[in-house]
Each structure stands twice: as C-alpha cells, then as structure tokens.
Nucleic acid binder design. Structure first.
Lengths: 214, 214
DNA sequence: TCTGTAACTTAACACCGTTAAGTAAAATAT
DNA sequence: ATATTTTACTTAACGGTGTTAAGTTACAGA
C-alpha cells in the first residue's frame, strides 16, 4: 500500500503546486493576465496536464476563491474577543476593508470576478467543504448583528437582511477602490478614500443610536 | 465642400454604427462574450476597419461607458422636482438601484469592468466631454447632500465624503447582485434582496435622524 | 489623364481555453 | 517472466481572441 499512497500523495502535491502557482501568478499580474499556459510553463508541465487536476479555468479560480475565505476568516478571528457586539460590528467593517485593501486580487476573485461563480453553477458545489468558510464569514456577521439586536440595537430590523446590507455597504467601498472608480471622482483631497468611507459607515451606525460622534 | 462633408458624415455614421452594434451585442451576450470580430461581422466590415475608428477594444467600451452615464442621468432627471433634499436623496438611491437592475450590462461597464478605466488611463481623457455626464451624476448626489446638510441633516459630516459613501453603499448592493453574490448567501427567503437592501439603507438614513420608521 | 490619399481588406502574429489522440512507464494479472 | 492494463503525461490540433503590417481599390484634386 505504501507505494500507492505515495502516488496519491504526489498527485495531491502536484494539484497543490498548480494552485500555489496559479495564486502566485494571479498576485503578480492579476486574473486577466494569467493563463493556463502561464501556469503550466512555470511548473514545467504541459498545459493539458492541468486539466487532469482541474475541470477548467473556472475550477482553478474557484479553489483559490475558497482559500480567500480562509484568509478573510483569519482577519475576523482576531475580532472574536471584542465583547460588545456593536463595537465588534464596527470592527468587522474595518477588518473587512483592511482585508480588501491588503489582498486586492483575492478580493476580486471572491466578490467581483464572475469565474468562481460559474464553477459553482456548473456543478452544485454549494454544499462543499470550502463553503464552510464562506458561511463562517457571513455567519460571524449575522451573529454579531443578532447580538446587537438582542441588546436593543437596530430595533425591528431583520438580522439577515441587515447583515446583507452591511456587507453591501463595505463591499461597495472595496469594489469601487479595487476597480479604480475612486480616482475618477476623487478630486477631493482624500488620500485614503476607502478607509475614510469605512469610518463614515461606522459613524452612520453610531448616529443611528445617538451615540456621540467621535 | 458638400462632397467632403458627406464623407465626413458617412465616417461619423459608421463610427456610430460600430458603437450601436457593440452596444447591441453587449446587451445580448455581455461584455466577455463580445469580440471585435463579432461586431465586424454584424456590420459587414472587416475587423480591421474598426481600428480605423477606435484605438482598441477598451476605447469602444469607454465610449459606451459614456452613453451609460447619459442613461443614468435620465433616471436622475425625473428626481429634480423632489423638493425636500432628504427625500430626494432616498429617491436617488432607489433610482440608482433601479437603473442598475434594469441595465445590468451598462452598469457593469460603468462601475465594475476594468476596460473603460484602462482607456481613461492610456490617454488622459479625463477632461473630455463624456465625463460631463459622469460629473453631472455625481454632482447631483453631492448637491443633494449639501442641501441636506444646509437643512440640518448629517451635522458635521463632509458632503463629498458622504456622497462617496452613499454611492458606495448602493453600489455594493448593485455589484453583488450583478456579479451573482446574492444567491450564494440568500437562503433567506428574500426574492428581491437588492431592493430590500436599498430600502434598508434608506431606513438607516431615516434612523440617523429619528424620523419614525415606515 | 495622372497622382496621391482615403477607406477598406487580406493575411498574419502571438496569444487564449480546451480536447482528441498518442506515448511511455509502471502496476497488475496470468 | 511475460502479457495486459492502467496511470501520468505530452503532442498536435481546433477554433477562438486582440491587434498590426502590408496590400488593394476607388475616387478627389492637379
């Protein structure tokens, strides 16, 4: 058995190597400039070999998209110990924007690019392991908002809808930044418009409850 | 002179036809599935002819991107007669989301796809005519918020930053919807999550000022 | 009538994702 | 120990992409 397990291990290693190389190229030059052929060349295999490990290009980027959620959850995990749920909510929004600004290409893949969603559509992967990570991230937000509601915040609002809306608000900032729509409008002398906008969203949350502005 | 003016007119007509055809194909099958060769085939010219009228593909989609802003401003113009600036602001956010949902491909081009921003970068087109339309749209939002501030809303907040933040919030909704990230998270029984979230943003604006919830 | 230019096309370059068919080596069965 | 099957990979190709260099054709002005 030791010989077949070695083979299996080697297969997994190559699959991991493809993924790791795809990630590296993706970080270096972005999704649009990364091809299957580029990946193949760098790992010194023929392009067709990649198709023995992944169904198609979408499938590769779907896998990376999963890794992105693991990384995002690392940003979130540090926030678990923030006791007050309202403060935690605001910390989540800052952490989210920080994650996006520090990992632009990952963010693109996770929330903007069509490719990984195509992979999801093709075969119903929705109940696969990797989505645990996606659910964990969104769940953290939902739970925090539910705690807020339990404490008297956001009275009468639906927790899940509010979670989605909050997500939308910070996502808007991040995606405008990443897809370069800030520079167009920013003759305002704001050097870091994204973070400033994030602060303003938190300020808006504050004002909803008449907490004195910072 | 009448003969050379005719020629000039014909040139403009062909340029317009290219654009119109690009738009049609774009609406039919989306940006990713529209090629220069597709456009050429439909207008019954060779692909290279298109390069006599547009620098490259980005240039074509930059031009369409401009048309999108004209269309968006049509949605906005109907809101000019809303007297109260706070009500107008909420009407703007609804109109914006409506525009996005009704013109998904245009929205994609205007606010998500990289291509038109590349064209902007290449030659500094920033001071060109078409951006009048972009500025008009954003200016309408800024002016409305300035009026709100003058009436005592959003005390102590910077109008331009708040305008950008408001834009971000609704853009977040629209881009998650357009790039299919709603379905992933929406086991919530919300059939029209985007509009519901837009309503919630308006509700948040309301609560910032203790106006009774609807 | 000759010449130059404007408008357009043909052919090609260098890429892309993807697949069918082939190969060589190793594992398994006889 | 030999024959057969399976595994892991490659070669070659298909049909597409954006883009450009070079060639053609028709027509305006001299």
């Amino acid at each position: 058995m030791t010989i077949s397990t070695r083979k299996e291990r080697q297969k997994e290693e190559l699959k991991a190597k493809i993924l790791q190389t795809a990630k590296a190229l993706f970080m270096e030059r972005g999704y649009e400039e990364t091809s299957i052929r580029n990946i193949a060349e760098r790992i010194e295999y023929s392009p067709t070999t990649i198709y023995l490990y992944f169904k198609d290009k979408d499938d590769i980027f779907y896998a990376l998209h999963g890794e992105g959620f693991v990384l995002l959850n690392q940003y979130f995990r540090a926030l678990g110990h923030v006791e007050d749920p309202f403060e935690r909510l605001k910390a989540i929004s800052k952490a989210y924007v920080t994650f996006a600004l520090e990992n632009g290409e990952f963010y693109d893949l996770m929330f903007i690019i069509r490719s990984p969603m195509n992979a999801l559509e093709k075969e119903k992967k929705k109940e696969e392991l990797n989505w645990e990570e996606g659910d964990r991230a969104f769940g953290f937000l939902v739970n925090t908002i539910e705690e807020c509601i339990a404490k008297g915040y956001f009275k009468g609002m639906n927790a899940e809808v509010l979670a989605f809306t909050t997500w939308s608000m910070v996502h808007g900032i991040c995606s405008l930044e990443i897809r370069n729509r800030c520079s167009v409008v920013s003759e305002m002398n704001q050097p870091n418009l994204a973070m400033t906008a994030c602060d303003m969203i938190n300020e808006i949350l504050n004002r909803m409850h008449n907490i004195s502005p910072s």
